[in-house]
Simulated scan of single mutants.
Amino acid sequence: MIVFDAPEAVPADFGPSVVAVGKFDGVHAGHRALLQRARRDAERLGARVVAVTFDRNPLRTVRPEICPDDVVGPSQKLDLLAEAGVDACLLLRFDAQRAAQTAEDFISEVLVQALDARVVLVGRDFRFGNRGAGDVAMLEAAGARDGFVVDVVGDVHPDAAERRVSSTWVRELISAGDVAGAATLLGRSPSVRGEVVHGLKRGRELGYPTANVGGAVEGLIPADGVYAGWLVDGGERHPAAISVGTNPTFDDVHHRQVEAYVLDRDDLDLYDHRVDVEFTQRIRGMVAFEGIEPLLAQMADDVRQARGILC
Rank of each mutant, 00 (worst) to 15 (best):
G177T: 03
E259R: 01
V287D: 04
G154P: 09
L270Y: 05
M299Q: 06
P248W: 06
D302W: 06
L296Y: 04
F4C: 02
V136H: 05
P64Y: 05
A33W: 03
R56N: 09
G22S: 02
F54M: 05
G203P: 06
P248T: 08
F279C: 01
D301W: 14
V213W: 02
F148H: 04
A288M: 11
L59R: 13
V196M: 04
G225C: 08
F94M: 02
E43W: 09
D151S: 13
A82Y: 05
F14L: 11
T249W: 04
A142S: 14
R282T: 11
P209K: 12
G203T: 05
D151L: 09
A211L: 07
G123P: 08
G22M: 01
A9H: 13
E236Q: 15
A99H: 11
H254L: 15
L173T: 07
A29G: 13
F279W: 04
P222H: 07
D301F: 12
G234Q: 08
E236A: 15
Y271I: 10
E290G: 06
L78A: 03
G214P: 08
V3W: 02
R60A: 15
D252Y: 12
D269Q: 15
L173R: 11
V149C: 15
A100I: 06
A260M: 07
L296Q: 10
V10S: 04
Q113W: 07
A141Q: 15
R145S: 15
E293L: 13
Q97G: 15
F54G: 03
V262I: 14
R98T: 10
V287E: 12
A88L: 08
A133P: 08
R37Y: 07
A260S: 11
A51Q: 01
S167N: 09
L220C: 07
L92H: 04
L173H: 08
A82D: 09
L185T: 02
P74E: 13
V52Q: 00
I221H: 00
L185Q: 03
I66P: 00
A88D: 06
D70L: 11
V275D: 03
G203M: 03
D95E: 15
G194N: 01
P190C: 07
V277Y: 00
R307L: 10
E83M: 09
V21P: 02
M1L: 14
I2V: 13
A12T: 13
G187D: 08
L268C: 07
A29N: 15
E278A: 12
T210L: 10
L90G: 00
A117W: 02
R44V: 13
D233V: 14
